[in-house]
Simulated scan of single mutants.
Amino acid sequence: MNRGPSWFNIVSMVVGFAFLYLPIVLLVIYSFNAGRNVAVWEGWSTRWYVELMSNDQLLAAAWVTIRVALLSATIATILGTMAALALVRGGLFYGRSLFSGMVYAPLVMPDVITGLSLLLLFVAVGFSRGFWTITMAHITFSMCFVAVVVQSRLISFDKSLEEAAMDLGAPPMKAFFAVTLPIIAPAVAAGWMLAFTLSLDDLVIASFTTGPGATTLPIKIYSAVRLGVSPEINAVCTILIGIVTIGVIAASLSMKRKEVRRRRDERMAAAANAA
C-alpha cells in the first residue's frame, strides 16, 4: 500500500522553503513600503521605484551588470558546450585528465582565489581593468557550469541519430546543428540561464577585476548596504528577482514545448513505421 508523505516530511519541506524564500518575499514586500525606514511598515507605495528611475548611479551599474551577464553567459555557453563535446565525444585523447581537471577546477575554487589570480594576471599583462576584465572573469568561472549541464545531456544522447544523418549524406557539422543541437538545446538553454544568473549574482570576483566606470550592481548594492539599507536597494533587487523569474519561466515553458513537440514527432514516426 502506497502511503502518503509523513508529517515529518511535510514539516521539513515547509520549513526548508520558508527558510529559503521568506526573506525574498519580505524584500519584495518592503520594496513597496511608503516610509524610508526599511524595518517599519508605513503603507503601500511605489515611491521608491519612481525614485530609482532617477538614480543614475544605480541604473548605470544595472546596465553594466546586464551587459556583462548577457555577453559572458553567451560566450561561456559556446565554450562550455564545446568543452562538453570534447569530453564526451573526444575519447581518451592525450591530456584528457588535465583538460577535464582544468574545466572543473572553477567549480571548487574559492571565489577569492579566482578573483585574486585573475587580478594578478591582468596586472601582469598590463590589461586595463573595466568592463572587459569583468566579462572575461565571469566567462572563466561560469563556463564550467555550462560544461557540466551539457555533458550530462550528451552522455544520455542517442548518437545513432547523428550517425543516421551522416549516413544520409549530411556532413558532421551539419548533422550536429541539424540533429544534435536541437535535441540538447534544453540543456544548452539551462546552462545559459545558469551562467547568466551566476554573473548577475557575482560580487567577489567582480570586485577584484573591476575598474573605473565598470561598477556592477552587486558591488554598488554592497557599498550602499554598508551605510544602511535604503528602500531603493529593495526596489532594484525586486526588479532583478522579476527578471530572473521571468527568464526561468520562459526557459521552462520553451523546454516543455520542445519536449511535447519531440514526443509528438516520435509518435508520428512510430505510427509511420508501423504503417
Rank of each mutant, 00 (worst) to 15 (best):
residue 140 T to I: 09
residue 116 L to H: 06
residue 119 L to E: 06
residue 145 F to A: 14
residue 135 T to A: 15
residue 185 A to R: 09
residue 192 W to T: 04
residue 119 L to M: 14
residue 154 L to P: 04
residue 169 G to H: 07
residue 140 T to G: 00
residue 199 S to E: 05
residue 136 M to W: 13
residue 190 A to G: 08
residue 123 V to M: 05
residue 108 V to W: 02
residue 161 L to Y: 11
residue 150 V to I: 15
residue 144 C to G: 07
residue 111 D to P: 10
residue 145 F to Y: 15
residue 182 P to N: 09
residue 120 L to M: 13
residue 148 V to L: 13
residue 112 V to H: 04
residue 163 E to D: 14
residue 167 D to S: 14
residue 149 V to M: 10
residue 142 S to L: 00
residue 149 V to A: 08
residue 109 M to D: 03
residue 132 W to C: 01
residue 144 C to H: 06
residue 198 L to D: 01
residue 134 I to N: 10
residue 161 L to E: 10
residue 189 A to E: 02
residue 153 R to A: 12
residue 187 A to T: 09
residue 197 T to I: 07
residue 166 M to Y: 02
residue 142 S to R: 07
residue 166 M to C: 08
residue 162 E to T: 09
residue 110 P to E: 01
residue 163 E to Y: 06
residue 187 A to G: 14
residue 145 F to S: 12
residue 155 I to P: 00
residue 129 R to F: 04
residue 129 R to I: 12
residue 131 F to Y: 15
residue 195 A to I: 01
residue 168 L to G: 09
residue 111 D to C: 03
residue 164 A to S: 10
residue 108 V to T: 12
residue 153 R to T: 04
residue 108 V to M: 08
residue 119 L to R: 15
residue 162 E to H: 02
residue 180 T to K: 11
residue 182 P to M: 06
residue 145 F to V: 10
residue 193 M to I: 14
residue 115 G to V: 09
residue 107 L to V: 14
residue 153 R to N: 05
residue 149 V to H: 07
residue 115 G to K: 09
residue 153 R to E: 06
residue 192 W to K: 03
residue 118 L to M: 14
residue 172 P to D: 12
residue 121 L to Y: 13
residue 195 A to S: 14
residue 115 G to A: 10
residue 182 P to F: 04
residue 156 S to D: 12
residue 166 M to E: 13
residue 179 V to I: 15
residue 182 P to C: 05
residue 162 E to F: 00
residue 150 V to M: 11
residue 161 L to N: 04
residue 115 G to Q: 12
residue 194 L to F: 08
residue 142 S to Q: 11
residue 158 D to N: 13
residue 179 V to D: 04
residue 133 T to W: 02
residue 199 S to R: 10
residue 158 D to W: 03
residue 133 T to M: 05
residue 129 R to Y: 04
residue 199 S to Q: 11
residue 158 D to R: 09
residue 140 T to P: 00
residue 136 M to P: 00
residue 187 A to H: 11
residue 186 P to H: 04
residue 141 F to S: 07
residue 133 T to F: 02
residue 164 A to T: 12
residue 149 V to K: 03
residue 144 C to Q: 11
residue 172 P to I: 04
residue 181 L to Y: 12
residue 173 M to T: 13
residue 107 L to A: 09
